[in-house]
């Protein structure tokens, strides 16, 4: 019963936060200089009439308050508007982008978690050994690489070996068999995913290592050892399980960030995801598109945080309020 109450309270918080974020997103971009019209009207010979027609067409002649109310009303119906640039519903455009981002960010995050947990546990287990020093230094080194820089380096080194951009081979058969398509996408994903993994796993390593060192020094680990439990089982069953709590929070916070943090990586590798869409839409002042992108980014951060809260609550019965 207590957990239900907790979930409901967190849920209300989440809804309020989403609303605030939506509002902020709306006004933030209207505060930017330039507009979709000024961008489109850069073509030679654009007459004031054309500009006016465009302004009316995009609904930019109405007051900002009216635009805002209309936006909220449409949003409640799941209507994200129509892209100024593509003249297609934003929700359709972003749905496929989101899938692509989730694929890349998911692979990157899962890979980073797996690598981070493994190296962190091993480093703590073999504390102060050469393995630990090497492991930890490597983690700090890669963690401090800027993703865009590492992406470019990987691009330079592996450009001939692995596909350097896009998500699939344009010249592949129209409808290749599934496994062929999957292999193609995987090959295209290798470099961007490696960039994400390498720049993120070090953080997990450090967190897992320090948290493991703490739990390994606990008396219940000593107790388990005194009762004759083999080392391997002590490390994974007692120490690692208790050490994972800070990980859950960190992973969830990062998940939200990775959807947005992949912007640079997506641009570098021309990965057709949310990040790429945000970048394009921003440079074209495509308000509905930008709003849609940011909506997805903020909502994903907030929802994943909500999820992390619930997960922490499940895992650690001591969490209250």
């Amino acid at each position: 019963m207590r957990s239900l109450e907790y979930a409901v309270r967190r849920g209300i918080f989440t809804v309020v936060t989403v609303f605030l974020a939506v509002t902020l997103n709306f006004f933030l971009f209207r505060a930017l200089p330039g507009s979709a019209v000024s961008n489109l009207a850069r073509v030679p010979d654009s007459s004031p009439e054309l500009q006016h027609a465009l302004t009316v067409r995009f609904g930019l002649d109405r007051s900002e308050w009216d635009q805002y109310v209309l936006y909220l009303k449409n949003l409640l119906h799941g209507d994200l508007g129509v892209s100024f640039t593509y003249q297609r519903p934003v929700s359709h455009l972003l749905l496929s982008d989101l899938q692509n981002t989730v694929l890349l960010a998911g692979a990157g995050t899962l890979g980073a978690i797996a690598l981070g947990v493994l190296s962190g546990v091993v480093a703590a287990w073999r504390r102060s050994s050469a393995l630990d020093h090497l492991n930890t230094s490597l983690a700090i080194l890669t963690y401090s690489f800027p993703a865009q820089w590492l992406g470019l380096v990987l691009l330079i080194v592996f450009a001939g070996v692995l596909p350097a951009g896009g998500m699939s081979d344009q010249f592949l058969f129209q409808s290749p068999p599934f496994w062929r398509h999957a292999a193609d996408v995987a090959a295209h994903m290798a470099l961007p995913a490696a960039t994400l993994i390498l720049t993120a796993y070090g953080g997990y390593t450090l967190v897992v290592r320090s948290s493991m060192l703490e739990t390994l020094g606990q008396d219940y680990v000593l107790t388990a050892r005194a009762k004759g439990l083999p080392d391997r089982r002590i490390v994974w069953r007692h120490a690692a399980r208790n050490a994972m709590l800070p990980m859950v929070t960190m992973v969830a916070l990062d998940l939200g960030f990775v959807v947005g943090g992949a912007v640079l990586v997506e641009v570098i590798f021309s990965w057709p995801g949310i990040g790429m869409a945000t970048y394009t839409a921003l440079s074209q002042r495509d308000y509905p598109m930008v709003q849609g992108c940011l909506l997805i980014l903020t909502v994903s951060v907030i929802l994943l945080n909500f999820l992390a809260d619930l997960l922490c609550f499940r895992l650690d019965r001591r969490v209250t309020a």
């Binding site: 008396d219 219940y220 107790t223 399980r241 895992l315």
Partner: peptide, 9 residues
């Protein structure tokens, strides 16, 4: 310390 010698999970 009985607060530390039992695995909290």
């Amino acid at each position: 310390d009985p607060y530390e010698s039992l695995d909290p999970l």
